[in-house]
Design a protein around this nucleic acid. Sequence first.
DNA 1: ATAGTGATCAACCATGGTTTACTAAAAACA
DNA 2: TGTTTTTAGTAAACCATGGTTGATCACTAT
Lengths: 167, 167
Amino acid sequence: MVDHYGQPWFTKSMKKSDFEKQKNASLSHQLIKAGRLINKRGLAAAQKSFHLPELKQSHLDLFPYIDFAGTGISEIAKRKGVSKQSVSKLVKEMVHMKILFLKVDPEDNRSKRVFFKTSGSFAIQKGLKDLMSFDCLLKAHFGEKSYTSVLKKVSDIVDIFQAENQN
Amino acid sequence: MVDHYGQPWFTKSMKKSDFEKQKNASLSHQLIKAGRLINKRGLAAAQKSFHLPELKQSHLDLFPYIDFAGTGISEIAKRKGVSKQSVSKLVKEMVHMKILFLKVDPEDNRSKRVFFKTSGSFAIQKGLKDLMSFDCLLKAHFGEKSYTSVLKKVSDIVDIFQAENQN
DNA sequence: ATAGTGATCAACCATGGTTTACTAAAAACA
DNA sequence: TGTTTTTAGTAAACCATGGTTGATCACTAT
């Protein structure tokens, strides 16, 4: 029995020597751990590749909510479940870092659509390579077939959760 | 090509219609996502089970650094890489919530060892059941054999990272 | 006209850290 | 031995972060 945070739970009868055995016994726990480590690595890689020491997790957290086709600030805020004011600040910083750019919506002059900046001085291609490198490493370790199988299973887990969170 | 944060990277030539296909293509990305979802669920379960709405992530984050045999505050701080003052505050709160208790080290009267409270009004057994439930769910979904295989692979991934982070 | 919406600014707040200063006990050492 | 230095823990002040609310402005929709 292991909790979700890295340390085995225990009962009074549980001996200390059971620790190591149980350490890796929980998939939930290992998934949390893997996620954190990858996240940490991803942030470090992004900072290094883009030469943007100011890039923070909070900025990266915005990525999933920005569409290829451009997204309004209010829309991003709604999707993320936070106020548009806080999104506005983060976006401003990312525009400054040349990760994003803004363009007034011709359909609605109030709305500024947010876009990824894919050219210019912000060399997204180089950063991309680094960000991808861990997946390559995993593929090399597991082999293409095994990689795909684990991916499928982890994806199922994500689906289970997302279904569960619908309520 | 997918980034680590949920949104596909793209190049100018990449069409919008490629999005869905790539959405689940990165194991790194899925692991991050799974980790976050499990984490969220674990916190919610812990709060509910223990009737401790004040329980925060920061408290749970301390768990991995507390030994069964008791651990000193300074040791926890060193392991976690933060100041002992901040650990001290968190531990105090957790003692108040009856999750932990303190005992002066008979070997060293300066040192207070931190222990998990496994009996008394803090019904760890009930909480444990809830915290474990997702692993049961996963086992039911995958079957024991498949669960073990995925666990092994995710554990390997964790090991790869931890080895990498040694430097 | 008037109500609603998109964006932004400023003021404020909770969180989880830090540094600085302190007490008390242990360890090192002359 | 007695003194000095290190270590464990705490408390208080402070700080960066990432949020919030409230106000305002410009534009859109009714």
